[in-house]
């Protein structure tokens, strides 16, 4: 922890005299043509890619997703659904809730005060900022309205995606959503399925430390 570590390291890096030499003229990278899919194709590709990673994908109409969501919940025995009241669909969710559904649990206190609940609740629902068709991934920017642990600690993560925000590629999403101009959030995430591991004999199994299931509602 010498105070000089920084200065020493930087001066060693700067001491080099090889900068202008042949091998350090950086080759120009080729321009790689990205995907250019129509909206329908993007939805199709995203669905296919996510399903390969064992996510469950439902393409539904923007008006009808809540009913389908509630029907899905009725088929499962869940001890509660974690949600953000300030999420875009928060008020609609509250208004549509019924007594036979798992209780709605708002995430409104700092994690320190509700740690037990966060680690024991069965399901969490979040919005998404977009998705990537090429590799199949959701883009999440957790915020005060929908904090980071919502998509991590519950065994079932439900994500709601507006089909219009499905981009061809990751690079396109960064560019068209102006990530640089906007400024990065404390934490941005790409999520492509339920958590998984292949650490034992490369046998793929799902549900390790993160959610065991990911259900994506694509609103078209």
């Amino acid at each position: 922890m010498t105070a000089n570590a920084r200065a020493n390291i930087l001066s060693r890096l700067r001491a080099t005299t090889i900068q202008g030499q042949g091998p350090f003229i950086v080759p120009d990278a080729p321009i790689i043509a990205g995907l250019e899919l129509s909206l329908e194709e993007r939805i199709g590709r995203l669905q296919r890619m996510l399903e390969t990673m064992h996510a469950e994908v439902r393409v539904v109409s923007a008006g009808g997703w809540l009913d389908e969501f509630k029907a899905m919940l009725r088929t499962r025995a869940l001890n509660g659904l974690l949600y953000g009241p300030a999420a875009p669909f928060g008020p609609a969710l509250e208004a549509a809730w019924e007594a036979d559904l798992p209780p709605l649990v708002p995430y409104i206190e700092p994690a320190e005060q509700c740690r037990e609940r966060l680690f024991s609740i069965d399901a969490g629902i979040t919005s998404t900022r977009g998705a990537i068709a090429e590799t199949g991934a959701l883009i999440l920017w957790p915020s005060a309205a929908e904090p980071r642990l919502m998509s991590l600690t519950p065994g079932l993560h439900i994500a709601v995606l507006d089909a219009k925000t499905i981009f061809n590629t990751f690079a396109e999403a960064i560019d068209q959503q102006h990530w640089l101009r906007h400024g990065m959030p404390a934490n941005a995430l790409l999520i492509s399925g339920p958590s998984k591991t292949a650490d034992i004999e490369l046998t793929l199994t799902f549900g390790v430390h993160g959610p065991k299931e990911l259900v994506v509602f694509i609103l078209s």
Binding site: M49, M53, Y107, E109, P110, P147
Partner: peptide, 30 residues
């Protein structure tokens, strides 16, 4: 084609946020 999670961390927990670490340290090793 991509891993399950790609995690991009730019700051500790912000003032109004409910989770995430209060402190983030980056150690740069030579």
């Amino acid at each position: 084609p991509i891993t399950t999670y790609f995690n991009m961390i730019t700051s500790p927990r912000r003032l109004d946020e409910l989770d995430g670490p209060q402190e983030v340290h980056l150690v740069i090793l030579d």
